[in-house]
Design a protein around this nucleic acid. Structure first.
Length: 582
RNA sequence: GGCCCCUUCGUCUAGUCUGGUCCAGGACACUAGGUUUUCAUCCUAGUAACGCGGGUUCGAAUCCCGCAGGGGUCACCA
């Protein structure tokens, strides 16, 4: 794609500062992750020329919905993805995830913090007060009920509801009521003119004054609204480029109007950052990718299996379950949701970054894939490192239409990455994942993890799936369950031909000293050749003896992983258990 | 409903600004062959799209107009 006019000069912006500003109400949504990734990439791309900064700010002005735990979770999600921030809350990377950068992220070296908006109330108040003094903002005393009534009335009359300060508004009287301690909100006086938003993606978008109204900038509880806080903070923190989801495009005229009215203490004016609103991400069916999707799937499964199976202990109580099932919009806390899914052995759709992590996706693959959602360099190259992405990324290359999230393609990317990964590195990553989500695997496999990973990788699209082809390693030698079909086809067919070979194979294997996959395969191969048999004639009975089924990873890997003593024990037991009836 | 945004294979997209090289390219998925000790991997090939209707033009996926469809937003949430 050719560069947009705004990029045509080819000049390098000297100090690009981008920011990601989530509200801490839960784990980071995958859509938010893409926004953060694009912001991060732009700050570290060629336009930034090495001097760009990516800033993280926590927008916790909604006291009811924000939580410290959620804020921590978001920090952790970002760090896992490899998206680090130069300015923002301090965060120390723990654990042995091979990918995470060691050490500290964030801090306030530029002295523009704090980065939690709830800690900046005094700052906002000063700006709001100047607005009030200049009569560019004013107190309003309407109650929620009154506003609801006004909206209903407008709706009835098929008008769009707009709150505009009446011409005969008594400013002095209102200010006196405020001075007397009356509860109120502060509204911004929207200038009576159209607002033009210049957007790097959408182009120039004009919003007529008739669509704008005197919106609230400070709530009854004294906290600023998002609109005020975001504008003040972006200005004070030196943000030059605002990249965010397209759902914010309709908010932008408010922000631009605010930028025109707000002044600093010395009277200087606010700047207007560059905006880039990116397309939304949807589910495959076109619906919005929502955290509720997980509850929906879980509710369906609980209804089918009955609620007894999933309550008590760590799980929700009967009463909690009932309330949850009865309310379409109710959501279970995410940790409980995970436990319910585990109890029911169902997969929840991955929505939050944490979901993808738990499902066994590699963070660099998640980043690579979401970079492709709504962005393309146009060079047919789809796989790239994050450093390459930074180098390639331009605002003008962001697409305009919404993208559907395709898990199949993500899975394919993850699979391919697992295939080409250096074996010891793969084992390390797998171990780190297991320690967090499936400790049994790491314990059971111990030193065999690298070899096991190598044997299973061609059958696994995620770190989680790595254990699936290896099920026979987690079963005791005398607990193998034999699949009737496999026994019939592989052992009993042709008068027990397969079964008869097993004792001899056992003898032959007992004499193999080098218990490596290659050496085992060579020994079995030579044995077959000596008898004029195809490899399958020996391999399949051995598979059944080792796993109880006719399917397993390569024979050499399978036997080697099981270990010589166990292999011999399993052969013996298989022969004893599956003897042909007379 | 008002306003704003969007519309190329099933999906993500390239191509649109600067109309012809596009009977539309890549990737995932799918289908068919092949390799292989099982499963899988791997290799090769193939199917498949310019929302609709007008217009401009020698020529339109590309420019203009209209329509239809999808989405976003209309909070003392962000």
């Amino acid at each position: 794609m050719a560069p947009k006019p705004s990029d045509a000069s080819g000049k390098t912006d000297q100090h690009i500062i981008t920011r990601f500003a989530p509200s801490p109400t839960g784990h980071l949504h995958i859509g938010g992750a893409r926004t953060a990734l694009f912001c991060w990439a732009y700050a570290h791309g060629k336009r930034a020329n090495g001097s760009g900064r990516f800033l993280l700010r926590i927008e916790d002005t909604d006291q009811k919905r924000s939580s410290e735990a959620a804020a921590r979770g978001i920090l952790e999600d970002l760090a896992w993805l490899g998206i680090d921030w130069q300015d923002g809350p301090e965060f120390v990377v723990h654990g042995r995830d091979a990918r995470a950068t060691d050490g500290k992220i964030g801090g306030d070296t530029r002295g523009v913090g704090p980065y939690f908006q709830a800690q900046r109330l005094g700052i906002y108040d000063a700006y709001i007060q100047r607005l009030i003094d200049a009569d560019l903002a004013y107190p309003a005393f309407d109650t929620g009920e009154e506003l609801d009534a006004m909206r209903a009335e407008a709706r009835e009359a098929k008008r769009t509801f707009r709150y505009i300060r009446a011409a005969d508004y008594d400013r002095e009287a209102s200010l006196a009521r405020v001075a007397a301690g009356e509860e109120h909100v502060i509204r911004f006086r929207m200038p009576a003119e159209a607002v033009v938003v210049r957007d790097e993606v959408a182009g120039e978008v004009t919003f007529p004054y008739e669509e704008l109204d005197d919106f609230i900038i400070r709530k009854r509880d004294g906290f600023p609204t998002y609109h005020l806080a975001v504008v003040v903070d972006d200005e004070l923190m030196g943000v030059t480029h605002v990249l965010r989801g397209q759902e914010h495009l309709n908010n932008t005229p408010k922000h631009v109007a605010l930028q025109g009215a707000l002044t600093h203490e010395d009277g200087s004016a606010f700047g207007v950052p560059s905006y880039a609103h990116m397309p939304l991400i949807f589910n495959a069916d076109g619906s919005k990718m929502s955290k509720r999707d997980k509850d929906k799937v879980a509710k369906k499964a609980v209804r089918q299996s009955g609620s007894e199976a999933v309550s008590g202990g760590d799980l929700p109580t009967e009463a909690e379950l009932e309330a949850w099932l009865g309310d379409k919009t109710a959501q279970l806390p995410s940790d409980q949701l995970v436990r319910v899914a585990e109890a029911l052995a169902i997969d929840l759709p991955e929505i939050d970054v944490e979901d993808f992590r738990r499902a066994g996706y590699l963070p660099e693959v998640v980043c690579n894939y979401i970079a492709l959602l709504g962005w393309s360099k146009g060079d047919d190259v789809e796989r790239f490192t994050m450093a390459e992405f930074c180098e390639k990324f331009e605002l003008g290359q962001i697409g305009k239409s919404a993208a559907k999230f395709d898990r199949e393609k993500l899975l394919a990317f993850n699979f391919d990455t697992i295939q080409v990964m250096e074996p010891t590195l793969l084992a390390e990553r797998w171990r780190a994942w297991c320690e967090r989500y499936d400790p049994e695997v790491a314990t059971a496999l111990g030193e065999r993890m690298p070899q096991a990973a190598g044997a299973a990788r061609q059958r696994a699209k995620t770190l989680r799936q790595l254990r699936e082809p290896l099920g026979f390693l987690f079963v005791a030698d005398d607990a193998i369950e034999f699949d009737a079909k496999a026994v019939k086809k592989v052992l009993h067919k042709n008068d027990g031909e397969g079964l008869r070979l097993l004792p001899e194979l056992g003898e032959m294997l007992a004499a193999v000293d080098d218990w490596s996959p290659g050496s085992i395969e060579a020994a079995v191969g030579a044995w077959c050749e000596g008898r004029g048999l195809g490899m399958g004639k020996a391999a399949q009975p051995l598979r059944v003896a080792m796993t109880g089924t006719s399917v397993s990873p390569g024979l050499g890997d399978t036997l080697s992983l099981i270990g010589k003593a166990s292999v011999l024990a399993r052969i013996e037991r298989c022969v004893a258990t599956n003897a042909l009836a007379e």
